[in-house]
Design a protein around this nucleic acid. Structure first.
Lengths: 114, 114
DNA sequence: CGGTTATATGCCGGTCAAGGAATAAGAGAT
DNA sequence: ATCTCTTATTCCTTGACCGGCATATAACCG
């Protein structure tokens, strides 16, 4: 169930931005609204999608609702990725030496860009 | 560039099925059509999306076009996932300690940083 | 050349998601 | 109870995507 919604939840750049924000620390909705530059209703709807995908959970703090990442679906993604990771390791081994003259840039930085 | 389309490409279940098929081995379009039960045009369109996302590449073999996985975007996904992976490793660690609480060995639990 | 196979593309109709504006709902404070 | 603050939900419109159908393109073969 979260399988289907997980990918569609992360397909949206705004939602990935929200997830990246929550990676730093849990945040109330107001902070997320301000950070991602959307209207409050839109942000709330994105948060609903993320909630239903199981990616975030809410803690109520007075009138505020503090959202935090739930790591479980991330693990699910990682499990999905695992078979492909072995493939890519294999291919890097095969092609790495052959293409070393056509490598203009080396993707080394691990910072999430979106 | 493939950054934006990568997630949307994988958001579709049919396209994920195609990717899974190509994980086993490269395949011509006909095989993919038959395997995923869609019409040939639809399949071709999905393949186009995957191609534009950089997830697959084509090799021409007579009249056939053999599609194969391109491991690079998978690596990109993996890089995106990396920061979150440390997060859920932390959570798994917490869960393990909680399960071990029947044997209070060393209750030194570093408070959830940030 | 015409014919056959294999794949891609254009068009169309239905469905679904996204964003804004307005409004409702819930919690605190007075 | 009322007022305020914060968040969620509804309505509506627009735009994108998905699927099938028909057709175009391309490569091979006679």
């Amino acid at each position: 169930m979260s399988d289907a919604s997980l990918w569609t939840a992360l397909a949206d750049p705004h939602r990935r931005a929200i997830v990246a924000l929550l990676l730093e620390r849990p945040r109330p909705v107001g902070e997320i609204v301000e950070a991602c530059g959307l209207s409050q209703p839109s942000t709330s709807k994105h948060l609903k999608v993320l909630r239903e995908a199981g990616l975030v959970r809410v803690r109520q703090d007075a009138q505020r609702r503090v959202y935090a990442l739930d790591p479980a679906p991330i693990a699910e993604l990682d499990a999905w990725l695992a078979p492909y990771r072995t493939l890519w390791n294999r291919s890097l081994d095969q092609l790495g030496r052959r293409l070393d003259e056509t490598a203009p840039d080396d993707p080394e930085e691990p910072a999430p860009k979106d």
